[in-house]
Computed example of a mutant assay.
Amino acid sequence: MAENRRGLGRGLSALLGEAEEGQEVQAGQAPAGEGAREIPIELIHRNPEQPRTHFAEEELAELADSIREKGVLQPILVRPSRQQPGEYQIVAGERRWRAAQRAGLKAVPALVRELGDNQAYEIAIVENVQRADLNPLEEAKAYAALMGRMQYSQDETAKVVGKSRSHVANTLRLATLPPTVQEHLMAGRLTAGHARAILTAENPAALAEVVVSKGLSVRETEALARAKTDAPKKASGPRAKPKDADTHALEADLEESLGMAVEVIDRGGAGELRIRYATLEQLDELCRRLTRR
């Protein structure tokens, strides 16, 4: 992939903060390439491809209170709307835009940039994943969508968003959890640490219900997952052997190549290869690769 797309996370703060302190702010339309300008809120619209889908009411209320007192301290990033001339689409900063509306502001400071669809999509994802309050499941789906859309590997995705490859790989696995577990994760009843521990369980959905009902810590969840995994089971065929270093390396290589969670289960020379996809786009890509002549 093109080098100029790597490390976007490190350059985003410069893009968002390039308006000089003390620069005059004027109302009305903002020509592309200039500093921050005040743009009427009604001329700004959300991006339907925004990675973040959940905005906590309490946090929005707190931010709105802060904006009433101090104003919007950091400009949002927008691009000219292609469907509505003279209006703008948010690239980064939807939460500030929502809170500004609650605070009763008529306009917000914004940087206007001419951005293509793919570039705007990358920036939106980077801006969100760099914020600590992004839900881990939304983060996982954002990585999966970015990989599917841009055909990035896990390593390339990690460089784009400024994260480690292991972080991207571990986060992607969260999107393979059962729907009931994902609901707990989205609602905040489970943390990313809980979810990673539950992933290793034979019945993640059942374990999640126990964790939520008892309010278990991450360490307690890990211990419970290990206990259930190590519990003796009725033999229904050759038992899977403990994985050696070569098997783990093979799984890592396949995950890197496919951009999906892979598990190799060997039972004395026979076994299974499990590939978990997080989105329908990933499934389509897997089918395309398997049927390629």
Rank of each mutant, 00 (worst) to 15 (best):
M1I: 10
E3G: 10
R5Y: 11
R5Q: 12
R6M: 15
G9L: 01
R10Q: 12
A14H: 14
A14C: 12
G17S: 08
E18Y: 15
E18H: 15
Q26G: 09
P31V: 02
G33K: 00
A36F: 08
I39S: 07
P40N: 05
I41K: 10
H45T: 10
R46N: 14
P48W: 06
P48Y: 06
R52F: 06
H54V: 15
A56V: 14
E57A: 13
E57H: 12
L63M: 14
R68F: 06
R68Q: 12
K70A: 15
K70P: 06
V72H: 02
V72E: 02
L73T: 15
L73S: 14
R79E: 10
R82M: 07
R82P: 00
Q89C: 05
E94M: 12
E94T: 14
R102D: 11
A103W: 01
G104L: 00
V108G: 00
P109E: 01
L111F: 00
R113E: 09
R113Q: 09
L115R: 02
D117E: 15
Q119A: 11
A120W: 01
Y121E: 06
I123H: 01
E127G: 09
N128I: 03
N128T: 09
N128E: 13
N135S: 09
L137K: 03
E139D: 07
A144F: 03
L146V: 03
M147S: 03
G148V: 00
M150K: 10
M150S: 05
Y152P: 03
Y152K: 06
S153F: 05
Q154S: 11
E156Y: 06
V160I: 13
G162R: 00
K163Y: 08
H167L: 11
H167G: 07
T171A: 03
L172D: 01
L174I: 08
A175G: 05
P178Y: 04
P179K: 07
Q182M: 00
L185V: 07
L190Q: 03
T191K: 08
R196C: 04
T200F: 08
E202T: 08
E209T: 05
V211H: 01
G215R: 05
S217P: 07
V218H: 04
R219E: 15
E220T: 08
T221C: 05
T221E: 02
A223Q: 12
R226F: 01
R226T: 05
A227Q: 14
A231N: 10
K233E: 11
K234F: 13
S236D: 11
P238D: 14
K243P: 02
K243N: 02
T247M: 10
T247K: 09
L250S: 03
E251Y: 01
E251F: 04
E251K: 00
G259T: 00
A261R: 04
E263T: 13
V264I: 11
D266F: 07
R267F: 09
R267M: 13
G269T: 02
Y277G: 13
Q282M: 04
L283G: 12
C287G: 13
R289E: 09
L290R: 09
R292N: 09
R293V: 11
